[in-house]
């Protein structure tokens, strides 16, 4: 549905060339929810805006629903943009117009009769759970309600694609969940392809099927969300996954962590990641029996992503000399293992 090919974009700032996007290749399937995650300044905002040409790439191709947007005339580009809805972090509603007129705005840009507009807005109000708010003004609404208005407005022309620019980032956790599940409903019921950008791995975890990680204008990793969660390769990806898995070790342990064993009472610290229904407990019990090693579980976290469980665990081994054998055993049992280092505990 969306195909970005070899996208490059540079800015000139005070005479210096700044690379915003570098050789971006991205393919979003029809009907999927695709997430792009990156820190601030990674270029995700620019990348999203390249899809509807709010930002024009310096080179590359943007193909949406089979049309190469960079080849379109101004008039055809306007038509193509109508088939793409867009929502924003700060909602971008018209403050001087009520909910009805905000949602009706994109409809008024085409030659629809006021009766048709009336009906369509009514449908959209119901779809987004805003019945009864037609006459309210934006300043009378909560953040979640404002985003619902923005979503209704974005869906006015029954778009095939919805672009979401940090749509939940200005909302509290509960409202975030409600807005994300609304997006998921829209995706499932209307078949709208959603491309979203976020800096929160939780958003990716909750609704995305696939994800791309953007760092300094480049896509450093992309794939199925579950794969990225259980087998992150790049350091940036790992740190995003770690924020979501709540796996930051207490600072007193981190402070004492060495990459090599420094004395005999240093214990190896292992990080395990697992997915699927391979229950981890028998593996740990097996490890204890098979390798004759004492295990201390420091941290464990379990997640369900798209109905499949995945998790992570940090443990320390009492006997450093058994470390290699333990890692072998765990890997044979299908776990991702990483030796974080050595630490003297207690």
């Amino acid at each position: 549905m969306i195909k970005l090919q070899n996208i490059n974009k540079n800015y000139a700032q005070k005479g210096r060339k700044i690379t915003a996007l570098q050789d971006i290749n991205l393919y979003v399937n029809s009907g999927e929810i695709f997430g792009i995650i990156g820190g601030s300044g990674a270029g995700k905002s620019t990348l999203l805006r390249c899809v509807n040409l709010l930002e024009e790439p310096d080179s590359g191709e943007v193909i949406v629903d089979g049309k190469s947007l960079l080849d379109l005339s101004t008039v055809s580009l306007r038509d193509a943009r109508r088939k793409m809805g867009m929502i924003f972090q700060h909602f971008n509603l018209i403050a001087t117009k009520n909910v009805f007129h905000n949602i009706a705005l994109p409809l008024k840009l085409t030659k629809l009769s006021s009766k048709d507009i009336q009906e369509r807005v009514q449908e959209l109000l119901e779809l987004t759970g805003l019945q009864g708010y037609a006459k309210a003004y934006p300043h009378e609404l909560s953040g979640g309600q404002k985003q619902r208005v923005a979503i209704a407005r974005a869906l006015a022309h029954e778009p095939k694609v919805l672009l979401s620019d940090e749509a939940s980032s200005a909302l509290d956790p509960q409202t975030t969940r409600a807005i994300l599940s609304l997006l998921q409903d829209i995706n499932q019921q209307l078949g709208v392809t959603i491309l979203l950008i976020t800096h929160e791995m939780d958003v990716i975890k909750q609704i995305c099927q696939r994800v791309a990680i953007l760092d300094q204008g480049q896509i450093i990793e992309q794939g199925e969300v579950l794969d990225i969660f259980t087998q992150p390769k790049h350091a940036v990806t790992k740190s995003f996954v770690a924020t979501c898995m709540k796996e930051s070790l207490p600072s007193d342990i981190l402070d004492k962590l060495h990459t090599t064993q420094q004395n005999s009472n240093d214990h190896p610290l292992l990080h395990l990641a697992f997915r699927g229904n391979s229950a981890v407990e028998p593996v740990i019990s097996g490890l204890v029996k098979h390798c004759d090693v004492m295990v201390n579980i420091l941290q464990a976290h379990l997640e369900t992503i798209h109905g499949e469980s995945c998790g992570a665990m940090t443990l320390s081994l009492e006997n450093a000399d058994k470390c290699d054998a333990a890692v072998d055993y765990l890997r044979k049992n299908g776990l991702q293992v990483e030796v974080l280092g050595y630490v003297a505990l207690g």
Binding site: N52, R78, R81, F88, H90, N92, L109
Partner: peptide
């Protein structure tokens, strides 16, 4: 708000609209 102008441009509005 520049964001609002951007949103309306993304809707496919002409300058007159």
């Amino acid at each position: 708000s520049p964001g609002l102008i951007e949103a309306v441009t993304a809707m496919g509005a002409k300058a007159s609209q």
